[in-house]
Design a protein around this nucleic acid. Structure first.
Lengths: 400, 400
DNA sequence: GCATCTTTATATTGATTCTAAATTTAGTGC
DNA sequence: GCACTAAATTTAGAATCAATATAAAGATGC
């Protein structure tokens, strides 16, 4: 299937180098002996591969640091480590009203971050692209990284993106933006841009640094204003035919509502409904400016009965969604993430309790600790994945 | 992650041999020149690899058949082809009341088939295993294949099976059967047994030889008595944590019913309901012995209003299920399969029509042409996949 | 201070596998 | 029989890795 290059002897070097690099990525400073043990290569080969990788800029040699392992005898070992500044990746979260760009090194450590608002929600695609570009340059400048050293960019948007990174289901809003962003950043900066759905990135992000670390079968629900899910089975993201996998509208279709509202949205609206009535509630003091979701959470925490009732309704709704997804996909864990995640902690108990009503295979439920940086985290992870898979084909610019 | 063998020069031969074998599997008799073009190898290497494979029994050389390509000049080419009788695979469908075993050659051609009923539904696991074993030997005898030449066995059962082939969610019924079957067939016959959920196998089967041929994102619903789905995204089966992926009970949980009934079941039961009333219907003539699903289909085809109404209800229910799955997974195609598939053709139009009510991303809907051999087809496919992935590690017995 | 020990580094040799180019072989057509 | 053609075989050369032997670098002990 994959038009793999014919098995030439050079392929061996590639395989060896790939194995060594993978090991180096998972370790700190290592000796050649450790490389040998990890990869099964001979000392001679291991050294040769390390020197290759060093010449190409991916790894660097440390000054003799005997004390490292605590072992003191014998000839001191050379130590190699990943050159995490060999290049950088950008993780982007491009929303309707603003764009956030994170700069990370090859170990995924965040070096800089910048957020810029769009002037209006309906600015043309090219202007939107220009803002994103400017945000990226700002973030880079703040991290002392050269734009030339960017190896990959991943951008998350709130639209279906298929597994090749194309927006197929033509959404009016993102219609021109997707190709525009890709071509503009490639032409102007020489950057490879990977597009991906934001909920999918949330899933990658949380599996990387969040509640789902190390879990292979997990669903991450981005749950603030709208609901969207990133589905992971056996460690792989599901996309479906057009990138539409993870839509959660089925409940509403079944019930005849027709859209998918998130936790913050529901809390706010149901609070407004309650205030239209005569119920006595501490929420009334916010009525003038409009009740926000966080007010409802705060009031509930303080014991307000109406607020508690609202959160209960939200919990039931979430339990329904989680239950349906759990039945169909049988994940080990369902994570609730997004800006609302900090407050959503309060809902966990109620959701878990009710889950058994809606599925025979209830998963663990958790709230992501990543908050609203869950999407950029996933974008960084996705860009790193790309770099790691293509390291041996990428040329590093001298610039660090 | 995968503890790959260290990159020794022998690895190259493995890669080359794998590429050649893969090409041979997809072709009929081929010349070395064709192998060269397909794999990118040199003539010398291609010949060497072919002779290796021939010595190991996987391929055979044809007598000089110049006329093959219609080209007449030059030195006649040697021709090689897959030795499809180098070994055999067994595909099993083990149900509650009977077991079916199919024998296939390495091209997947069915050579023999046998079905044996279990004496009672509740016989102990070991007896059940013994019946399966006997069925397998019968099928083998009928195909002139030696039990020693069986390279892999795949058995489908109606219980969740995780991606490692284990039954984790302890179902009383299959509890002892799964390990029992594996160890018994390994010890008595030396066969490697892969266990898999029947709906998952249906998905593999239909994607191989059915309506979903070549479709990478597809859901196959086994829909006769109970509903169960095999989910495929990007050509890969989903299992979930414990093999529970593909359960369709969520609708019932939402609606508070609590189980997942298939097309035949619903048709039969709703017919019984109708007969309890006074409606005039041609179904009444079957009332004494109990109305079967096929009667309802026949009556509807003949114009009976009550029967049509029943099928309409069934269609709505199926549309709901298909719609929900389509929303969450966004497949290109949903296939309805199983014993009921022949009749289900009648429902296609009604389901498709109503689909838009239940999803914004309606997939194509089709009925599988494989009928009730959809599970064994998938089992054969799964066993072949195993053999193809492990060819170079398998020793062929001399026996053809 | 010097021999000894431990661990690492380097060099040599040999095996496997591939490519590339030259040569041989087995047919066809006149 | 002779030229032509395409395939097969042979030969030479390069890349890569394993295995072994040898050298180096430092610590330890007397």
């Amino acid at each position: 299937m994959t038009e793999s290059p014919p098995a030439t002897p050079q392929l061996l070097r590639r395989v060896s180098a790939g194995a060594v690099l993978e090991f180096l990525r998972a370790s700190q400073a290592v000796t050649v002996t450790e490389v040998m043990e990890a990869t099964g290569l001979t000392r001679a080969t291991a050294i040769s591969v390390c020197e290759d990788l060093m010449a190409r800029g991916w790894i660097r040699e440390l000054e003799n640091q005997r004390a490292f392992g605590g072992y003191q005898k014998g000839r001191p070992a050379r130590r190699f480590e990943l050159n995490e500044r060999a290049g950088y990746v950008l993780g982007m979260d491009v929303g309707v009203s603003k764009a956030t760009v994170v700069v990370a090194d090859l170990r995924g450590r965040t070096l800089g971050r910048s957020t810029q608002a769009f002037a209006r929600a309906d600015i043309p695609a090219e202007e939107r692209v220009a803002v994103v570009d400017r945000t990226a340059l700002l973030a880079l400048a703040g991290s002392g990284a050269s734009p030339d050293a960017v190896l990959a960019v991943c951008a998350g948007i709130a639209a279906p993106v298929d597994r090749h990174g194309d927006v197929l289901v033509r959404q009016h809003f993102w219609e021109l933006f997707d190709v525009g962003l890709k071509t503009a950043l490639l032409e102007m900066r020489g950057w490879t841009v990977l597009l991906e759905n934001d909920a999918n990135l949330a899933a990658l992000g949380d599996r990387w640094q969040g509640a789902a670390a190390g879990v292979d079968d997990v669903v991450v629900i981005l749950a603030s204003e709208r609901l969207g899910a990133g589905l992971i089975d056996n460690g792989r993201l599901l996309h479906g035919r057009d990138g539409g996998a993870g839509e959660l509208a089925f409940l509403e279709w079944v019930e005849g509502v027709g859209d998918t509202y998130g936790i913050a949205f529901l809390a706010r609206n149901w609070a407004a409904e309650a205030l239209a009535g005569t119920a006595g509630t501490t929420l009334r003091k916010y009525a003038a400016d409009g009740v926000e979701a966080e007010h409802v959470f705060a009031a509930a925490a303080a014991g307000d009965a109406v607020a508690r009732q609202i959160l209960d309704r939200v919990a039931v709704r979430m339990a329904r969604v989680v239950g349906a997804v759990a039945t169909l996909l049988n994940p080990e864990l369902v994570v609730i993430g997004g800006a609302v995640a900090n407050s959503a902690d309060m809902l966990l108990g109620a959701i878990t309790e009710r889950l058994a009503q809606f599925t025979a295979t209830p998963p663990r439920v958790a709230v992501s600790p990543l908050g609203d940086s869950i999407v950029t985290a996933g974008a960084v992870r996705r860009a790193l994945d790309y770099v790691e898979q293509n390291s041996l084909d990428l040329e590093l610019t001298a610039a660090g």
